[in-house]
């Protein structure tokens, strides 16, 4: 059976036959979740890949859209995809602009852009693949690495607490924030779809497995073992809110952190231009 028979292949560049990820990597699950969400929007709302611009930074997950997705794709510098995407969106307010990148890219080196994009409430959909480690560079500790884990650059165990990125983005003002794991591909797809539909900044954190680096340093090993860990340690947000910090140690809270309306930046610019008597040329 030719690869082209896969229903998602109509959304991928025909010459890109192989994914560049390691066996068992969660990036492929997230890539599919994005494409299945677009597939549903295609059937329900007539959206096509021509309606999208995909922007990514540096790291394994920055290669989710580039080169795979058959759309305008912009692969940028480390930490900066949200800043690039902001310019794209303000220049092409009718396009859907989706950022796919990793936790190191978006929450470490690019953390300030993430905070301010959420605060501005610009209509971007940001999918952050969080594997808790620097995978591409060989297993260094990340701001998302669980405290105590021995990584390549925390050989005696990380002393820093892990970054609750979804909660931070919600606190910064984003109207839609959700977190799921790659063990929850349906929920992930629904959250991404909702994020694309949301007029405003939406942030979907996908807790994901890096079997090669995280699997090694966590001693969890294979992709399936990490997925089982996600399955066994995930906790719905509603339930987590009733629990103490001690009880929540080692748990992954999943669900929707917020879903609200707020004035969006690109549309406010359109309104201002209209008020000032000119449409964008």
């Amino acid at each position: 059976m030719s690869l082209a028979e896969h229903p998602l292949r109509k959304y991928t560049r025909p010459h890109v036959k192989k994914t560049t990820t390691c066996p068992g990597c969660g990036n492929g699950i997230v890539a599919q979740a994005i494409l299945w969400a677009i597939d549903e929007l295609n059937r329900e709302e007539g959206l096509s890949m021509d309606d999208f611009v995909f922007v990514s930074g540096i790291g394994c997950s920055a290669w989710i859209p580039s080169p795979l997705f058959a759309a305008d794709t912009l692969h940028t510098t480390h930490g900066r995809p949200i800043a690039f995407a902001t310019g794209v969106k303000l220049g092409l307010p009718r396009q859907k602009v989706l950022v796919a990148s990793g936790d190191g890219d978006l929450a470490a080196i690019g953390g300030n852009h993430l905070i301010h994009a959420a605060r501005r409430n610009i209509d971007l959909t940001v999918v952050m693949v969080n594997n808790g480690i620097y995978g591409m560079t060989g297993g260094q500790t990340a701001p998302t690495t669980p405290r105590g884990l021995n990584t390549i650059t925390s050989p005696y165990g990380t002393m820093e607490p892990e970054f609750n990125v979804a909660a931070m983005v919600a606190a910064a003002g984003a109207p839609y924030v959700a977190r799921w794991t790659t063990y929850h591909p349906r929920q992930l797809k629904r959250a991404i779809k909702k994020g694309i539909q949301k007029q405003g900044f939406s942030f979907i954190e996908a807790i994901s497995q890096c079997p090669v680096q995280y699997g090694r340093v966590s001693k969890l090993g294979r992709a399936t073992a990490i997925l089982e860990h996600f399955r066994d340690h995930s906790l719905k947000l509603a339930k987590a809110r009733e629990m103490s910090e001690e009880e929540l140690a080692g748990k992954i809270t999943v669900g929707e952190f917020c879903d609200r309306q707020a004035p969006e930046l690109a549309s406010q610019w359109s309104e201002l231009r209209a008020r000032l008597g000119k449409e964008q040329g």
């Binding site: 611009v53 922007v55 305008d72 912009l74 940028t76 510098t77 900066r80 800043a83 690039f84 995407a85 902001t86 310019g87 794209v88 969106k89 303000l90 220049g91 092409l92 396009q95 300030n112 852009h113 905070i115 301010h116």
Partner: peptide
């Protein structure tokens, strides 16, 4: 923007737009 890095990046994004 929040800093000059974001300034040049968003200008590049707008140019591609």
């Amino acid at each position: 923007t929040e800093d000059e890095i974001a300034a040049i990046c968003s200008a590049i994004g707008a140019s591609w737009a």
